[in-house]
Amino acid sequence: MSSPHATEDAIFHGPLGRWAGWILGSVVAADLFAMMVLTFLDVSGRKLFTSPIYGAYEVTEFMMGVLIFCALPLVTAREGHVTIDIMDHFVPRGAMKGQRIFISLLSAAVLGVIAWRLWVLSVSHLETTEVTMTLHIPHGPFTRAFSIMAGLATLACLAVAWDYVRGWRVAHDMSHGAGAGSA
């Protein structure tokens, strides 16, 4: 990853992108740590003191949502989504730049639609007071936040496209070592 900003987890160029990336990183780090501690406290509370944390599982659910959607711009800025890159050998060097710009724009379109539709869903959640069964946690604020995060990921994706346009990112044969870390 040769982008000038990818290493610092900035989600796009400039101080704002760095700052946003740092905030998101801090949020997901704190959130994941809290998820872990919450499970530990819930289970040990139940086992040792017969007093589990009421509705812990619903809290876990929303903490996980925050984790995934806040990390989405970070993944996107790094071009961290899993791709099949075995055709890279067959793409002419000259066409690679154009290919990457096209892919980034298409990805931005998909993320943009997700952001838009999550926003629409958040309107419905707020209007109908959608809440969870046990703790009555409202869905609306979360759908709205997730929509905003998907929007940020869209911006990050457009920034990636711009990087390629300006030559700040260079497309090269990645069919080795693209770190998916998935399996």
Binding site: V28, A29, L32, F33, L67, F69, C70, L72, L74
Partner: peptide
Amino acid sequence: REVLIDSARTTSMLFMI
């Protein structure tokens, strides 16, 4: 911090798939 963010990124990537 690194471990936590790294795990979060992997998770987010898996969830998109």
